[in-house]
Design a protein around this nucleic acid. Structure first.
Lengths: 372, 372
DNA sequence: GCTTAATAGGTAACCTATTTCCATTAACTA
DNA sequence: TAGTTAATGGAAATAGGTTACCTATTAAGC
């Protein structure tokens, strides 16, 4: 492969001139510039990224870390987020390096991307509540941005979607339709967004002076299968809910499927809402009422924050909370007064994963310094 | 950040010894080794990837290039493929660099990843039929593997799924149910897999001595919206099909939605098949009959081939064609004899994108030297 | 105890580009 | 004509490692 000095030789200039042409620094006569460019073209020369990185202590790489596999498998919508991230990263002249959760060998593995200087900064998607990764990044002073997560204790950039108020909107909507028995099908509580959605549910009921019935919370794992289990759990209760809030569209789909299998008609016999507005949600029958997140904007902001952090490590950290958009479709209606559904009782081995009595931490939005 | 010589100083050895410890080459006394490791630990030392790359002319990076945006948006199943790729790449001690189609600035942009020596090799997902990228990679001798595409003219590694025979299986299945009017809803014909599926349809009919009716082919674009348009097109024909083969699950979903909106009951009034077996397909009502591809295996093989190509550039290229798995669910039945459906005629502005008369190239499987 | 070989560790050159600090020449300005 | 600016070249240092080569120590064999 040709090097800078090969180009210099061919163009009959010193390698300094070649460097000047490539980096656009210093003065170069137009004639010379063209001569050099021609030589570059002729040799098919590309500057060696490693050599540059070594010198400048800058790789132009940005790492994306996804700590939890569940976030990926349960969320194709996450592809849109990555697409947005990549697009913005590329536009800023950076490239994208991926680390998936399947590949964790040890805690160390993560930030290695940065420590080995393969990237200039990190974007962390949906970290877990224990925040060990964020703590570590903060401690090591790694330029980073958290997306789909937050921690107001740590001095760290984040761009989160307002899951808490999103679920509140949904609860209020269902209450306005006349529902008084609203089931909550949660996602994993390992993820902050999972917990926020539960908090939103709990607080919305409280604000409306409704009694919280912990039996109406079923703890799922984001997968459609959870929806199937949740349906069977809820309809084995003495008073099943007339509406079910699923913490994502996948689980809502599972509920719909199982409801239809049992002869229920949605929304006549049961109202269902999802979360995320995955592509297929609008094509379901009935189409799914759900919450859309501004993925495009989130990606753009995250990249902007990160690059600012890379270029200016002393820049104060920003906390951004994005509003969500409620998409009302066909899957909700007023509650049906009576419903005589005979379900076979739950297999005792298949008892749902109930964690009645756990108190979830409440988000404190007051600490956010920005709200878009 | 600490460097090798910082470690050397602290451990009271020369930097060469540190290098030996890190790379496990050469002889180092156990005492010394421990001393060095302790120093590494204490300083939090990580070898600088750029410096290593510069020396070894090896980055341990693998680039993934997705030339066409449509392949991504229309295919969440592709996330599973990427997951598999990343997992295998990581297990082999490499890392993953992404280039998405949205970020194309010029043809050059692509192979730059390799030319700038940011990666040691490339995986190309679903290239277009014109094969310009593959030609270029071959010409420049870039270690690479094509996934979801092929070209038996070019001397290049590929791992493809057998779309041609996959669709044949589906056609034969529908014929066996008694269908004689089978509609084909294609994906984009820019992608090889799109064309292969059409060829499979055409040839399967021919092999069964059925007349090919070009009116029964509707050219879609992989999106659910295509399914909606296709339904309206097909049911404006004098004799609508009794079964529709969609080239992917997304479009099948669109057909189902529109069929139900028009009061058809699936599969009673219309049989539908998809392709890819996306997660949600099993949760639709009715669940979707579709074709599953061994994404896990494809990812594993692709990475294996690529790393072999990187380590041994003279290794003969391999052509691998993977079998697909037919998943029969509820969306197909015997054809209904009579169906009186009154559709409003197509908006003249919404005429389907018909390309009657185009002859598609037929795949030549004889040239593949492997079939798994 | 001496030879031979294996082991342990050090030195210098090199990988490719950048930066700094000058030195030189040509061209232009006051 | 002196002084300034632009346009290049040159040398040396640097970035953080690796490789090849070389020396010194230790262990094994007789």
């Amino acid at each position: 492969m040709p090097s800078q000095s090969d180009v210099a030789k061919l163009a009959n200039v010193s390698f300094m001139t070649v460097s000047r042409v490539i980096n656009g620094k210093g003065n170069v006569k137009e004639d010379t510039r063209i001569k050099v460019l021609k030589a570059i073209e002729e040799l098919g020369y590309y500057p060696n990224a490693a050599a540059r990185a070594l010198n400048n202590n800058k790789t132009d790489g940005i790492g994306i870390i996804i700590p939890y596999a569940e976030f990926m498998t349960a969320a194709p919508y996450f592809l849109d987020l990555i697409t947005s991230l990549e697009k913005n990263i590329d536009e800023m002249g950076y490239h994208l390096i991926f680390k998936f959760p399947s590949s964790i060998k040890s805690a160390a593995d993560y930030s290695n991307l940065y420590m080995e200087r393969k990237v200039d900064g990190l974007i962390v998607l949906a970290p877990s509540v224990d925040q060990w990764l964020l703590k570590r990044l903060t401690k090591d002073n790694v330029p980073s941005v958290v997306v789909y997560g937050r921690d107001d204790e740590l001095d760290i950039n984040y761009v989160d979607a307002d899951n808490y108020n999103g679920i509140k909107k949904i609860v209020n909507y269902l209450l306005s339709l006349g529902h008084t028995h609203i089931g909550m099908l949660t996602g994993s509580t390992t993820l902050i967004c999972g917990r926020d959605r539960i908090s939103g549910y709990v607080d919305a009921l409280k604000e409306n002076k409704m009694q919280l019935d912990r039996q109406l919370i079923y703890y799922g794992n984001w997968e459609p299968e959870s929806g199937i289990k949740a349906f069977n759990y809820f309809f084995n209760l003495k008073t099943p809910p007339t509406a079910i809030i699923a913490s994502n569209d996948h689980m809502a789909l599972g509920v719909m499927k199982e409801a239809e299998r049992n002869g229920l008609k949605i929304p006549r016999d049961l109202s269902i809402t999802g979360y995320n507005d995955i592509l297929y949600s609008q094509y379901l029958t009935p189409s799914l009422t759900t919450m859309r997140q501004p993925l495009e904007k989130i990606g753009k902001l995250a990249v902007k924050l990160l690059i600012e952090a890379i270029e200016n490590p002393d820049k104060p950290k920003e906390h951004i909370m994005m509003d969500t958009e409620f998409i009302i479709r066909e899957s909700c209606a007023a509650p049906r007064k009576e419903l005589n559904l005979k379900l076979k009782p739950l297999d005792p081995l298949e008892q749902p994963n109930l964690r009645v009595g756990i108190v979830y931490p409440h988000p404190e939005f007051g600490k956010s310094n920005k709200n878009i």
